[in-house]
């Protein structure tokens, strides 16, 4: 069986910081579907959690500084905004070059996600994933060509997997 399921490789974690505690976790659970749309949303969260608003904001700020929270933001739904052609481009690049090439692909403005993932030869030779969003298939393909040109001889093969249907999409789920 072609699996690495037994040992998923952990992602690099931030510098030896203590893990999040119970209140951080409770805060994540409380905010995962979004902040309340009321004038003082952090106070509302604080009320739910039985702590004060200062504590809620301090903790969110700390999680942001530690990189656990990437950003606090209005998160657009690309698909509903008309970026309906979501192409997952997958690339086979030399392992010794991926550390240099990955950040360059990830910095392209039309790439929304760029990850190093394990290969599973022979079925799955690709080790670099770059998600491309566009309003047409042609535009997505044009963007993929830009990535291919950027990689040059390090593009040992690639494919684009267009989405046909969204079968399920919910926010982050975390059980308390």
């Amino acid at each position: 069986m072609n699996r690495a399921t037994s040992q998923p490789t952990p992602a690099s974690r931030p510098d030896d910081e203590a893990p999040i505690d119970a209140l951080d976790r409770a805060l994540i659970v409380a905010t995962q579907t979004g902040l309340p749309l009321v004038p003082e949303p952090y106070h509302a969260l604080a009320g739910e959690l039985g702590v004060d608003a200062r504590e809620v904001m301090d903790r969110l700020r700390r999680m942001q500084e530690r990189g656990i929270i990437r950003r606090i933001a209005a998160v657009p739904n690309h698909y509903r905004l008309g970026f309906t052609h979501n192409g997952m481009s997958v690339w086979n690049v030399p392992d010794e070059r991926i550390g240099e090439l990955g950040p360059r692909v990830g910095a392209l403005d039309f790439v929304s996600h760029c990850y190093h993932r394990p290969r599973h030869p022979p079925d799955w030779p690709y080790n670099l994933f770059a998600m491309v969003h566009a309003d047409s298939r042609e535009e997505a393909e044009r963007k993929v060509r830009i990535i291919s040109e950027l990689l040059g001889p390090d593009d040992l093969g690639h494919e684009v997997l267009f989405s046909r249907r969204i079968l399920k999409k919910t926010g982050l789920r975390l059980t308390a």
Partner: peptide, 28 residues
């Protein structure tokens, strides 16, 4: 306006975006 954008599904949420793997484990 935010409530309307959320209702229309144009904004999936107003809130925190967490780094993958910072809480729990996950895989594609």
């Amino acid at each position: 306006a935010l409530a309307r954008l959320h209702e229309q599904g144009l904004v999936s949420r107003v809130g925190a975006v967490f780094r993958p793997h910072s809480i729990g484990a996950s895989t594609l």
